[in-house]
Simulated assay, not measured.
Amino acid sequence: MSASLPLLVTMGDPAGVGPELIAMLFRDRPDLAQRCVVAGDAATMARARVCLGCDAVAMPLVQATQVAEPAPWGRVSAHAGRAAADCIEWATREALAGRAAGVVTAPIHKEALAAAGVPFPGHTEMLQALAAEHLGVPVARLPVRMMLANPELKTVLVSIHVSLRQAIEAVTHANVLETLRITAAHWARLRLAPPRIAVAGLNPHAGEGGLFGREEIEVIAPAVAQARAEGIEASGPHAPDTVFMRAREGSFDVVVAMYHDQGLIPVKYMGLAHGVNVTLGLPLLRTSPDHGTAFDLAGTGRADPSSLIAAVELAAHMSGR
């Protein structure tokens, strides 16, 4: 990665708040936006600037999708889903080719993606597939993980967008160990000191010695032990109802959570304004704001750009390393 290369910011679902948030970035933080190029639709981005009364603000943009006209605000549509997917694909391929320092993705709508026939439930899976194709390997050979981060807490998830029943089934020795390896590798990639990784249990009180479930004894603890044998500074399984508090107080650098909501609720409870989604395990840098398309706010100019700005700041910091 090079700090001289641009960060590509995808416009997200054109019916949501993404275009407005990007326009606010260029309006309010020109110091940060000077590194950014928008992958989007010119007419959609122009509409966002007019909505905010900042149509004179300069914004480098690549027409990454072909649309007849901007999608109506606040509506799920295949038209909008296709445009969002086109922008993600273009930006990802540019980053994989070494022509960008990283990708910052504005929010997309999963229903719109599905309506457009996009065979991925979200950003993470789409980026993983594009990267695997670029590397010429099966998707299974390129495991990725989602990390949610804010200034006080970082958490990495063993599984992402699956049902709770499937998430429990995904708590295997291999998946937990792989998550620990991917997390440690991310810190090493940024040339940071090895992280102190806390591993949350799956069951209440981390199973209470097997009284409330044996996953901690039979699956999680052996994975932690193997990771430690490989030189990874991991500990646990810790009681999931207290481990996030302990990490916030400084006992750990990051928490590995067993499933989506276990890890994301603590981060999001502390506020969406500074939360950033980082995809670990990809051969490119990708960050994203920690919120959705907010269709109810689209076109009003009242959306809060803080999380997008935080995502760009983190991407700029990480790419600088």
Rank of each mutant, 00 (worst) to 15 (best):
W90T: 02
A85S: 07
A78H: 00
P70H: 11
H79K: 02
V67Y: 05
A91L: 09
W73D: 09
G98V: 15
R75G: 03
A68R: 10
E89T: 05
A83M: 06
A85E: 06
E89Q: 04
L96M: 09
A97N: 15
W90R: 00
S77C: 01
G98L: 14
D86I: 00
A80K: 01
W90K: 00
A78N: 00
L96T: 05
A85F: 06
D86R: 00
R75T: 13
G98E: 15
A78Y: 01
W90F: 12
P72Y: 08
A68T: 13
L96H: 07
E94A: 12
A97Y: 12
E89F: 00
I88Y: 05
A80I: 05
A97S: 15
V67W: 04
A95Y: 12
E89N: 00
W73H: 10
G98K: 14
E69F: 12
G81D: 10
A84M: 07
P72G: 05
D86T: 00
E94P: 07
V76A: 09
E89D: 12
A83V: 05
A84H: 04
E94T: 12
G98R: 13
H79P: 02
A91G: 06
V76K: 04
V76W: 07
T92R: 07
L96P: 08
I88E: 11
L96R: 03
W73K: 01
G98N: 15
A91P: 08
E89A: 03
W73L: 10
A80P: 05
W90S: 02
A84K: 01
P72E: 05
E94Q: 15
V67D: 06
G81E: 11
A80S: 07
G74Q: 08
A68P: 05
I88N: 03
A85R: 01
A68Q: 13
A91I: 07
C87K: 01
R82G: 05
R75Y: 08
S77A: 02
C87V: 06
E69A: 13
R82P: 03
A91S: 09
G98W: 15
R93N: 14
A84I: 06
L96G: 06
A71P: 07
T92M: 13
V76I: 13
E69K: 09
L96F: 10
E69T: 09
A83W: 04
R82V: 02
P72T: 04
R93T: 14
